[in-house]
C-alpha cells in the first residue's frame, strides 16, 4: 500500500464539543401465562388474584410461576378481596420522563389481605398530606380496562 503523505493535524480545531445523544429502546415484553391470568382477571372481573406456594404457603401478588423463597412451582390461585394495608408510600413532587401521571402524586406498597407480599401502585382519592402508613386501602378500577396493571386507577383509603 502506497502510504499517503501525512497531513499536519494543526489545522484541526480542538474546541470542546458537547453532544446530545438519544438512546431509543422499544422492548416487547411478554407477560407469560401467570401474568396473563392475573391481568385478565383484573380486566374481565375486577379481581386481584394471588398465587400460593405449595411448600411455604406464601401467597404472592403480583403472581409468579416459581416461589422466590423455595423455588417450588406454583399453580394454586387465590382470589383476594383487593383490600389491603398501606405499608409504605412516597409522594412525588417533581416531574421526570415516563411518570404515570403529572406530579404531585403518591404511590405506595399495599399489602393485600390474604397475601404475603405487597403490590406497588398509585394512591389517590385522598389529600397527599393525610396519607399514613397503616391506612386500609381498596382498589379503584377504570371503566375501560385493557389488561394492564393500570386498569387499577389507584388505591384509595377505605
Amino acid at each position: 500500500m502506497t502510504p499517503q503523505i501525512k497531513k499536519s493535524v494543526a489545522d484541526i480545531p480542538e474546541e470542546p464539543i458537547v453532544v446530545e445523544v438519544q438512546a431509543y429502546s422499544n422492548f416487547l415484553v411478554t407477560v407469560g401465562n401467570t401474568g396473563n391470568k392475573f391481568l385478565t382477571e383484573i380486566r374481565d372481573n375486577k379481581t386481584l388474584m394471588g398465587i400460593k406456594c405449595p411448600t411455604c404457603k406464601k401467597v404472592y401478588v403480583p403472581p409468579r410461576l416459581h416461589c422466590p423463597t423455595c423455588f417450588a412451582k406454583m399453580s394454586e390461585w387465590v382470589k383476594l378481596s383487593g383490600k389491603g394495608t398501606l405499608e409504605t408510600f412516597t409522594v412525588v413532587r417533581y416531574a421526570e420522563p415516563y411518570m404515570p401521571k403529572e406530579p404531585p402524586y403518591a404511590y405506595g406498597v399495599i399489602k393485600l389481605d390474604g397475601a404475603s407480599t405487597g403490590i406497588v401502585h398509585l394512591i389517590g382519592g385522598v389529600d397527599l398530606n393525610k396519607i399514613k402508613v397503616g391506612m386500609k386501602m381498596e382498589p379503584v378500577f377504570k371503566e375501560q380496562r385493557v389488561g394492564s396493571i393500570l386498569d387499577i386507577e389507584y388505591f384509595k383509603p377505605v
Partner: peptide, 22 residues
C-alpha cells in the same frame, strides 16, 4: 396487553467529548 406490551423509551443525555473533541 394482557399477553404482551411495548415499552418504548427515549433517553436524552448530554456528554462532553473532552479530549476526543479534536
Amino acid at each position: 396487553p394482557a399477553v404482551a406490551f411495548r415499552y418504548p423509551r427515549v433517553i436524552t443525555y448530554k456528554h462532553s467529548l473532552g479530549y476526543q473533541s479534536k
